[in-house]
Structures are given as structure tokens and as C-alpha cells.
């Protein structure tokens, strides 16, 4: 058992799985000698050598396309795209090949690859380094999209992603890489893809979120408890697609009041799908309109103003109070 931050926990998952399974490969820009621009793959080159930890030329489409080929032919590539803002260079490989290979070949082939992509804002970065566009991937049939919220579930979720027989987009909230440390057990721990977690129990209000927003939402829930005596239940989705609607349906039927929190743009964001499921499955249990606290439908501003874009504790509390008062 060690106290790890999220970057170290992801590194642990990669290292342990590479030790255990020699078909696991890591490839991407600067993942070898440099250990990744966020140091997530630090030390892997030294331990596993350059055949398995590949510093690639600068070409996202080739990184993903090559991974698809490697996966189809018996390897388990975990590729890294340096920032989600550069993943669009590879979108045609993800959408046109990775997501379709099983379907197109009638399961003659399948693509057991993971594409790790740092995403999201809050680190005072440059343009293209702060977006939250998980919808692109979640909207693509054939791709699974998972997003950890802390060190322990990041490690567990990555193990499950590597072992999954199909392509998994593993989005890493970069604001969480070094945000906090957590006990991560040495022994293997997995987190089934498509299963959410109850991160906080409560009977008055359901708060549904994921990624970096989970920490903000938990803080908001504590504030609601302290200031308003409201006990919120916080659901950490962990998988955006497939979306686990069982846990939040149970919770919504219990509380009747809901706020959905995400950093992604508001329109057509994951909240739209979550709220549709609530309408379909829990409409008659609702006591108030469901609230959304999200990023706006604008390109996230450069960092001097990004705080006003990203939902913070105060905005989440305000959204929750709206859900309680309506």
C-alpha cells in the first residue's frame, strides 16, 4: 500500500500490467526518454526497453492507426495522445477503424487497445490544452469512454481498460494528476467498465458527475451539508460510455432532486444523455426540474479566464440550491 497521486497510480497500473503481460505495449510522443509530458510513463522505457515503450514520431493518426493494427494482430497497445486537443488528428482512425473493426469484420477481428488522453482545464495551459470534449468519443458507437476521478480508481480503471477486448478511450483529467494522494493497494484492483460508484451517500439530493468535477462536487456536497443541512448523494460515473444508469436511477428515485455537473460544454454534453435517462426511468419520481452545472457553449477561454468557465464549488452549490428550491 502506498500513497500515490494519479500520475503515479496510472504509472503503477501500466508497470504492473506490462510485467504480467508481455503483449502490453506503450507508444506515443515523448512517452519513453521523457517519461511523458506529465511523467505518467516515467521509468517504463528503462524497465521494458524501446521495443515495448515506443517514442514515436509526431503523428497522432499514425499512433492510433498503428495501435489498431497492433491490437488486431495480438498485442495490447496502450497509446498516449499528448493532449485531447491534438486527438482530432487521429479521430478518423478512432472512428473509422478502431471503433468499427469488430463490426465491419463480423468479429473476425477485435481491437483490444487503450487510448490514454489527458483532457480538461484548470492547469493554466495554452489553447487546445484545456478542453473537455468527451462527447465526441461517447457519441461514437464502438468506443468505450472512461474517466477516473482519483488515484485509486484511475489505477483500477486502467487495468480493466487494458484487459477489455474492445477499444477504450481513457481520458485523464489533467488537473487531478497531482491534486491529491490516496492509498493505492499494491495488489491488483480493477474497476469494471460501465459501473459507477457512489462517492458520497445522502438522501436529499443526487449529484451526478465524473472526472475532475468529482472533487469539486464532493466539496460542494460538504458545503450543502454544513450550510443548508442538505445531504447529497454524489455519483461518480467513472464510465461515460457505457453509461451506468442503474446507480443514479436508484438514487434519483430516492431523492427526487438532481444536479448534473460536468466541465464539458452544456449543449449535447453528457448531461443531456444523463437527464434523458432520468426522464425515461425516473420522471414520476422527480420533485423539481433537473439542474445542469456545466461549461458554457464557448471555446474555453485562455487561462486568465478559465476559472469562470469551469464549474467551481460555488456554482455547483448554487445549482444544487436551485434543484432544492424549485
Amino acid at each position: 500500500m502506498a500513497e500515490l497521486n494519479m500520475a503515479e497510480a496510472i504509472n503503477l497500473a501500466l508497470r504492473q500490467e506490462m510485467e504480467k503481460d508481455d503483449s502490453v505495449y506503450v507508444l506515443g510522443e515523448d512517452v519513453g526518454v521523457d517519461g511523458g509530458v506529465f511523467r505518467v510513463t516515467d521509468g517504463l522505457l528503462k524497465q521494458f526497453g524501446e521495443d515495448r515503450v515506443m517514442d514515436t514520431p509526431l503523428a497522432e493518426a499514425a499512433i492510433v492507426g498503428m495501435s489498431v493494427g497492433m491490437a488486431m494482430a495480438g498485442l495490447k497497445p496502450v497509446c498516449e495522445l499528448q493532449f485531447s486537443g491534438f486527438s482530432y488528428f487521429a479521430f478518423h482512425q478512432l472512428e473509422g477503424q478502431a471503433a468499427r473493426m469488430r463490426w465491419r469484420s463480423r468479429s473476425s477481428y477485435h481491437v483490444p487497445m487503450v487510448c490514454r488522453i489527458p483532457y480538461g482545464g484548470g492547469v493554466r495551459a495554452l489553447e487546445h490544452h484545456s478542453e473537455s470534449r468527451e462527447t465526441y468519443y461517447a457519441h461514437t458507437p464502438g468506443l468505450k469512454v472512461v474517466i477516473p476521478s482519483g488515484p485509486r480508481n484511475a489505477r483500477a480503471l486502467l487495468l480493466s481498460a487494458i484487459r477489455d477486448p474492445d477499444p477504450v478511450i481513457f481520458l485523464e483529467p489533467k488537473a487531478m494528476y497531482r491534486a491529491f494522494r490516496e492509498e493505492v493497494p499494491d495488489e491488483e484492483e480493477t474497476q469494471p467498465i460501465g459501473e459507477s460508484q457512489v462517492a458520497r451517500k445522502g438522501d436529499d439530493l443526487t449529484m451526478i458527475t465524473y472526472g475532475a468535477m468529482t472533487q469539486h462536487t464532493l466539496e460542494a456536497a460538504d458545503k450543502l451539508s454544513d450550510e443548508d443541512g442538505i445531504e447529497a448523494e454524489v455519483i461518480d460515473l467513472l464510465s461515460v460510455s457505457p453509461l451506468d444508469d442503474k446507480k443514479f436511477t436508484e438514487s434519483v428515485r430516492k431523492t427526487g432532486r438532481v444536479v448534473v455537473v460536468h466541465e464539458a460544454h452544456r449543449s449535447f454534453g453528457p448531461g443531456a444523455e444523463i437527464i434523458s435517462r432520468i426522464n425515461e426511468k425516473s420522471f414520476y419520481y422527480l420533485e423539481a426540474p433537473v439542474q445542469r452545472v456545466t461549461g458554457y457553449d464557448v471555446i474555453i477561454p485562455y487561462f486568465a479566464r478559465e476559472k469562470a468557465y469551469i464549474p467551481d464549488v460555488d456554482r455547483i452549490v448554487a445549482g444544487a440550491r436551485q434543484a432544492m428550491n424549485d
Binding site: Y296, D297, V298, I299, P301, A308, Y309
Partner: peptide
């Protein structure tokens, strides 16, 4: 921070104006 709603389109559509007003 309201300037984040500028320069997306020549004319700001209603849904964006609504978000701007809310902010």
C-alpha cells in the same frame, strides 16, 4: 469573463445570449 461569449459567430445566437445573461 463575459468576453468568453464574444467572437464565436458574427451574431450571438439566442442560446448563447441566454448563457451569457445567466453568467
Amino acid at each position: 469573463p463575459l468576453v468568453m461569449f464574444d467572437h464565436l459567430f458574427e451574431e450571438r445566437p439566442a442560446y448563447l445570449e441566454e448563457q451569457r445573461q445567466a453568467m
